[in-house]
Design a protein around this nucleic acid. Sequence first.
DNA 1: CATATACTGGGGGAAACCCCCTAATCTTTA
DNA 2: TAAAGATTAGGGGGTTTCCCCCAGTATATG
Lengths: 210, 210
Amino acid sequence: MKYSVVVVDDHYLLSQAIGGMVQGFEKFDVLYLCKNGQELLDKLKEPNNIPDIVLMDIKMPILNGIETTEIINKEYPNLKVLALSIEEDEYTILKMLRAGARGYLLKDTKKEILEEALTKVIEEGSYYTNNVSKILTDSHENDVRTEIKDRELEFIKLACTEMNYREIADIMCCSYKTVEGYRDSLYRKLGIKNRIGLVLFAIHHNLFTP
Amino acid sequence: MKYSVVVVDDHYLLSQAIGGMVQGFEKFDVLYLCKNGQELLDKLKEPNNIPDIVLMDIKMPILNGIETTEIINKEYPNLKVLALSIEEDEYTILKMLRAGARGYLLKDTKKEILEEALTKVIEEGSYYTNNVSKILTDSHENDVRTEIKDRELEFIKLACTEMNYREIADIMCCSYKTVEGYRDSLYRKLGIKNRIGLVLFAIHHNLFTP
DNA sequence: CATATACTGGGGGAAACCCCCTAATCTTTA
DNA sequence: TAAAGATTAGGGGGTTTCCCCCAGTATATG
């Protein structure tokens, strides 16, 4: 009896290729492929379509891997998710693991590691590569990010546009001075000097995708 | 006699998976895999290592796909390159085709298209998907980008940092007023209002990678 | 040769941005 | 209940950016 696998990746050729690779593994069969999280959730409604494990990309249109994993962990707590992504920033990895992923593989691992990770996740419940466990233990960079308040995060996203602070204040329904307050507090916390620095920070930490 | 293929992609699992897929094609054999352009060029020095076609990613460390393709077209003009990338902005596609790629596939095509493209490139010399040929004919957005002078491009890259214009002037070895001139001319040409707009433009057009 | 058209610089003023300060609410937590 | 902190908002002033104006030189281009 083989374990069933579903591959979720918006780049179809890649999910086909990875699906083909998994199909070649001794203990695994590919059940089907999905192009995004929504497609997967729709499929799962049919009980026959529930696999043993989902191999999930993160950046996807409509419903991304993190949101999808959260939903899966609520609705199908026995369904295991293994993340497979190119995103290597600590915060994304942490978010994915907190969402309930049982492991996190980068797309430049090897075939053998993928096979081992799939096996370990199914048989032991989880699989962590060295770099991922290191991030789990000493995640310093994360500190600075959790310090960002909700309202500040809202501001950051608007600061990554051509709007000036007065226009941002209008959208956030607060005064110009309040917006200046968010900015000043962020500049201090993040050690940046100007709005360009803020945009770069937002991009590097996946708060904003250009 | 099968055609030989080399896959160049920095994400090793993906090149393995795509290599496996290609290996399954009737008329093709995978010769070897590479993690970047430099690795490929090193390999090609050995005549036995020259394949019939190279399947090349674009974004790679050390030597990217565009630079690599340019070199290949000079040194090995008979070696065909087929681009396979997730980059879908017009300028990157154009640059890759001008560098000498015989076709450009997005990573969300299908297995059958990949097989067809490989075959057509080898047997007929080129393969263009609909979207790519459309870009080749009516590329308007490109106009604005070719209007950017060398010195302005240099400025753009520096504007995508936390430096202020005085510091940028120092690095560019010109006066503060000259830098302001570059900025003003770019703002007019690109229809943007402030430096954030310039950074976003640079990112969207791959002039700057955060 | 004359006429564009970069490329380079400069003046000046208005607007935006940056950075320090204070302080009133309101919620959370010890 | 008192302390801590989040959220809001304002004063004041220095710096930077933005957006006009102008003009010399150098290099093509007709």
